[in-house]
Design a protein around this nucleic acid. Structure first.
Lengths: 226, 226
DNA sequence: CCGTCAAATGACTTTGAGTCACTTGCTGCG
DNA sequence: CGCAGCAAGTGACTCAAAGTCATTTGACGG
């Protein structure tokens, strides 16, 4: 009886979310729990039933909020990605002094520190997440992405005068490619981690932040040296 | 009765593969059929039961040759990847005249034309394929990869004198990252293709070969300009 | 305080990977 | 020549997890 009340208090939400505000809150709870599970394991290992349990909901309820597992994770990625864009944009806008390629590279790499979930999800985007999802959801996502890309791309262009008209977004796309690729190499399945721990495998071990900074710096130097 | 003989003739393999040679041939049949299905669809859409059917085998038999679906696709990737390494190496070894960054970039991009399956699989490697596979198989794969990376890396270094000691393999890793990332952006799920077909989505459309050539050229220019 | 109705539920369906007790084709030996 | 032995092959079965939906129930309006 006591625990019953306690559980209720813990979630601090009416059992039925009727107001849009409450629905939004419940949605957030689901996303948060999914994220926690994902951080601790992998996409494949996260079970919708577990997400439901952690969110103190029945499985069916989760499917009321997200029609498929892919849709849930795409929504999660959307949150993280646009939060990151905003953060990067802030760093670029408010950074004083002269901007150079290496500085930009460092800023980007730093802005991605502790964002492992974001970059891991990014690597899943086209191969997994966009597979079992409605056109509508993908459209919304891409629309949003386009906007962020153009906006932050313009900021990048303003900061690095050697960039030509329209190259900002292009740099961001190459950056996206590098991030996706490097994350895949740096973030390993347990089996792989074990294998790469062997001494002679050292050349295959990748330090995400380090390599990203290096590659992006080189890429920007290549654009400047043109 | 007739069809029975016909079926036998078609596969041109004894029903029981006892010799190692026959086992190898059967293994190849399975890999080939899996590849065909994958080319036409996606990893998730390829069913082991279908692979078996196409290979004129029972489902259980496929699992005799590959312990899991992931193992099958990892083996497939292994074949394609090392064939590509060999091809690239050949192009680099036998190419006459002076080598420059742009030339290398073009050579690489061309060597990847028509290799969509390879690059698509590459994008699945760490996120999917290395998830449900034995340490042993991963070790074999990585061992092989390391060897190819060092060998072809050395060839690259020889061709581009502005590269410093040991930078060849590093360039190849960044290349790998770009390939993985760009393929993900260029190779789209049907839903995504539909969305990006909208006129205003043009900036998000990616031409794989073009972008790869551009990014790699820039990256190499960045190394040369140092 | 009750009628209404959308939110929530969880038993059920479906799908597909992976298993294993049984069957059968091949080969070598008597 | 045929048949014993055995590894290759089989497919019905198990199991796990996504996704469905008929039924239940809590909150709000009257």
């Amino acid at each position: 009886m006591v625990s019953h009340t306690a559980a209720k208090a813990k979630r601090a939400l009416p059992q039925r979310a009727r107001k849009d505000e409450d629905k939004e809150a419940r949605r957030r709870v689901i996303l948060d729990e999914a994220l926690k599970l994902y951080e601790a394991t992998s996409y494949a290992a996260v079970k919708m039933a577990d997400v439901a349990e952690r969110a103190e909901l029945a499985k069916g309820t989760v499917f009321l909020y997200f029609p498929t597992k892919e849709a849930l994770f795409l929504a999660l990625l959307e949150d993280l990605l646009f939060a990151w864009f905003a953060k990067l944009d802030g760093l670029l806008e408010h950074g004083e002094g002269r901007w150079t390629g290496p500085r930009l590279a460092r800023t980007v790499a730093e802005s991605l520190e502790g964002q492992e979930s974001l970059t891991r999800l990014l690597a899943l985007l086209q191969t997994v997440l966009e597979q079992n999802v409605t056109v509508e959801q993908v459209r919304k996502f891409k629309e949003h992405l386009l906007e962020a890309l153009l906006h932050t791309g313009a900021t990048v262009e303003r900061r690095l005068p050697f960039l030509k008209e329209g190259e900002g977004p292009r740099v961001l796309m190459h950056l996206h490619a590098l991030v996706t690729g490097l994350r895949q190499m740096a973030d390993l399945a347990p089996v792989t981690r074990e294998v790469l721990a062997l001494p002679h495998m050292a050349p295959l071990r990748v330090d995400f932040t380090g390599e990203l900074t290096a590659a992006l710096t080189t890429l920007l130097r290549g654009l400047e040296a043109r």
